[in-house]
Design a protein around this nucleic acid. Sequence first.
DNA 1: TCCATTCTAGAGAAGGCATTCTAGATGACG
DNA 2: CGTCATCTAGAATGCCTTCTCTAGAATGGA
Lengths: 201, 201
Amino acid sequence: MEYGVKMPRQPKFSRDDVLDAARDAVFEHWRSATVSHVTSRLGAPSGSIYHRFASREALFVTAWIRSVRRFQQALTTIVEIPDPTEAIVETALHIPRFCRQHRKDARMMTLYRHADLLTTAPPELREELAGLNTPVATAIAALTRRRYGRVTNHGLAVMRLACRDSPYGIVRPIIGEAIPAWIDDAVRATTGALAGLPDHT
Amino acid sequence: MEYGVKMPRQPKFSRDDVLDAARDAVFEHWRSATVSHVTSRLGAPSGSIYHRFASREALFVTAWIRSVRRFQQALTTIVEIPDPTEAIVETALHIPRFCRQHRKDARMMTLYRHADLLTTAPPELREELAGLNTPVATAIAALTRRRYGRVTNHGLAVMRLACRDSPYGIVRPIIGEAIPAWIDDAVRATTGALAGLPDHT
DNA sequence: TCCATTCTAGAGAAGGCATTCTAGATGACG
DNA sequence: CGTCATCTAGAATGCCTTCTCTAGAATGGA
């Protein structure tokens, strides 16, 4: 607490409360979620939203970023699994598992694509978005090196498919619903097959 | 030309012209495509749109249906490929190939999910939407029977993954852009692996 | 030529939504 | 108890979009 800084009034709604409400509104209305959906869930006036976030877009993008970070949290430990092939498969399996345990965050993550946000998001969030992908990129690069003994562009592309795009494609149609256990078998099969590809064309 | 029917004025904009403009607007603006994006591309006033389509939603959903039908056109011949495994893999490969040759239609198809439209689309289109999936369902069922010798629910689910969800997941991040040739190798690998799974848990 | 039909044309009504603005409440601190 | 920073509160504003409505043009038959 700094000298001379008056202690402000206690917030009735925390920043996370607002983001939770945004996430819940998206879970229910997806792309047509409005600011008033958020305020009515929160029981707050629109002023409380705009006091913290510059715009509707800033609110939803911030909530999206929070969900992405939650997804990334487990990655670093998974990548350290001793056996390379197991590390690859477990990275891929993290996707259906996360979707099972964090249904709302998972659905929130489907709202935007990272590449699109880099150019369309509110300027004040661009910098954060630019660095957002590094944990995943680092993990993929580490897995690529461990799998092939070197890192080529094609090797990286294959590993992205194996650990990210392919498992995501498998769960995508049912994100937000229950994910059956056998989906994990399907992920094991596809990721195993992709990890078997060579790192050159 | 029926008796007593007066010949009307020639349309300046055909139905397909309007749908093309809608598809192009979606290619550029995706979900935020508006009716005025469409009219300005077409060089037409909004009246010409609303003369043919009941609402903005009816226009875009109709364009979506047209793209889906174009995708389905090649399916029936592919399924008839003699070797079952080859038929399965070629069905899956139809997805990256279609995305390569019909970039705008492919992107248009990402605008809605069939399951959502069944409940949210304008009522006059519901019936058409209800029957839209049958060509794909028929193809998947045929492939399931040929692969396993019988049709179980789990077998169908695996085959949907192999022929549709998995390859779609692989191309999805790059739909609208150029699809590299090696993507087909990845699809072959994953679809082959999934088709190798048994039809029971 | 006149008429019925089908279309283009575009101004503007209507509605929904994000956003702003002003007032007031709250709490820490001197 | 007064002051200040921070927050709640929600009515009011203004924008943007969809959609309607009226006028008029093109076409071919009677």
